[in-house]
Design a protein around this nucleic acid. Structure first.
Lengths: 111, 111
DNA sequence: ACAATTAATCGTAATATTGCAATTAAATGA
DNA sequence: TCATTTAATTGCAATATTACGATTAATTGT
């Protein structure tokens, strides 16, 4: 026990849950917002901006990269991270589709 | 260590992260979708529909209730759960606001 | 009052996540 | 080449999450 039983759920359900998980930490939210704020890229500035240690930031970047929502390209000794607009839009749509589902149904309260 | 350092982040960042966390499990996604699907309420049917044990479902319901996104009212020996439309709309808006932020900035790739 | 039904809670095991010090890897510049 | 800079990786401790058996709490029907 202890591990999520992904086999019980659909691909879409697991996909959405994983997307949510990628956003389920304030540091990762802060990283994404910082990437947006500085328009293009940013590197270890994140370590200065957020108050977390370098390995911790690196780990969060790793997760965001794994989720596909950001990309990192080496630039000299530093690494430039940026949001992947395509994946970002996909996230946006998946979440929106999920939230929209209620519009058709919930007019007033049930219980 | 091991605990999230919420004090390093803004209220909004923590709020969004917590909302995402509420959605960050396929069982909770499935529960919400089931509540939508059956329009109004549902009770222990969830235990039958999803393949998880009763205490596990109960725990996920607890988290969703804690997040405010669902409500439960006692009806005889069973409990009727339903989505809170107001909170649902808030979730929708918070996520949308977050995703929208990129529209103004990311036209083409950076790195 | 008492059996039956339903769901919450408790306790616990397994696993996952968070965070960081220490180290390593990779690239640059002198 | 070698020191410097930057970021990834390793290893580990603390905490959180997930899952469920066993039990408890609450309500209903008899």
């Amino acid at each position: 026990m202890g591990a999520t039983k992904t086999d019980l759920f659909t691909k879409k359900q697991n996909e959405l849950a994983n997307m949510a998980k990628a956003l389920a930490h304030p540091a990762r939210i802060a990283i994404l917002q910082q990437l947006i704020k500085t328009n293009a890229c940013i590197c270890g500035n994140l370590v200065d901006v957020l108050g977390l240690a370098q390995p911790t930031i690196s780990q969060h970047l790793r997760e965001l990269k794994l989720a596909g929502i950001i990309r990192g390209t080496v630039e000299g000794t530093s690494v430039c991270y940026c949001i992947d607009p395509k994946v970002w839009q996909k996230y946006r749509q998946v979440f929106n589709d999920f939230f929209v589902a209620v519009d058709n149904l919930v007019k007033d309260d049930c219980c």
